[in-house]
Amino acid sequence: MTRTDVTARDTAAAVPAQRSVVTAGTWLQIPSAAPGVLHVRPLTGEATASYVQRLASAYQLTPPQLLDGVGVTLHGHGALPAAELHLNHTAARHLAALARIPLPHLRRALPHLALLGNAHDTQAAATWKRMEAGQQPVRACTLCIRHRSHGTTDTAWVHRPPHRLMCPRHHQAASDPRLTTTVHTQGVPELAAAHHTHQHLLRHPRAATAWTTARAITTRWYDHQQHFTHRWHPRLNQLCATNPHLTTTGSASPALLTRDLVIYPETVALARALATLPNRPHRDDALSLIACRLGLARLTPNANDPLRVFLTHTRH
């Protein structure tokens, strides 16, 4: 039987015939560098383990079976989101051949692909690696992945950059790896507005530094219940009302699971203000400008406040 290219759109019609051929027994007879029958596109920033899982599911295989079938030796055990699957360059080439996606394109989509060994490795190998909490992937928008997979799954995990905290089209977000499903944000329209502002902020040369600083400051304010509790408490309550599952997640409180979402509008506003501050600003002038950007009549941080410390350091 000769292989034919079948796109994801044709999968629904083609899968029954294909899956009768691609069984665990016959899979091992497929050359490791042969192109696959199905075309499963990766998401931008998708975890390698997530993509391998989706690709394996398309063939009704487990990830170990899929990797073994393309000649990749799997080491260790793990599961998303606490662990990520790292492939060496040879294994990545095998995966790209199966996926029928050029390796450079696949590496751009999967940021953790081909992190092991070097390009001259002869053995194709994959290894499970545990990840620190701050590096773990989060759930992708369920509607986006369902559309991308033509209804075959709604689960994928992505390493999301800060400016993609939420999906503005479907009003979903996942700000913490411990969230087993996404958070619906329709009831908090200021999140979509903040997302729009954040995209414009990216054009500023100081955007990355300003964002890192602003997020550290607003996180501290949130944890110590300073300055914006009158906004953050109602916003948290609204998210919980729209997403009852937040109150039944046993791993952490809703206040922690949604912290990045709750503080997002103020973080974006503060980052924008910090990015556009003049060099060596006078502290009182800077505080007035920042208060205006944050929608406050005045902002009077104490001596230990991280914003005050930052402005003092900037002046010197």
Rank of each mutant, 00 (worst) to 15 (best):
R308N: 13
L257E: 07
P306L: 07
A91D: 01
A210E: 01
D260R: 09
P278L: 08
A56M: 02
G151Y: 01
A12M: 10
A216D: 13
V52W: 01
T300N: 13
A14Q: 06
P168E: 04
A109Y: 03
G76T: 02
Q226T: 12
C292Y: 14
A174R: 04
G69W: 05
N304R: 11
R139M: 08
A96T: 00
P111M: 02
S50V: 09
V262M: 03
M166F: 06
A297Y: 10
Q225E: 14
R9V: 09
D121C: 04
L202D: 01
D154W: 05
R100I: 05
L85P: 03
P111Q: 04
N237R: 14
R130F: 12
L143T: 13
N302L: 08
W157D: 05
D284Y: 12
G76F: 08
K129T: 15
S288C: 12
S253I: 04
V22C: 11
H147V: 11
T23I: 09
A125Y: 03
P161E: 01
L98N: 05
A109R: 08
V188Q: 03
P42V: 00
E190C: 11
N302A: 14
Y59N: 10
R215Q: 14
R108I: 07
T213I: 09
T127M: 09
D285F: 10
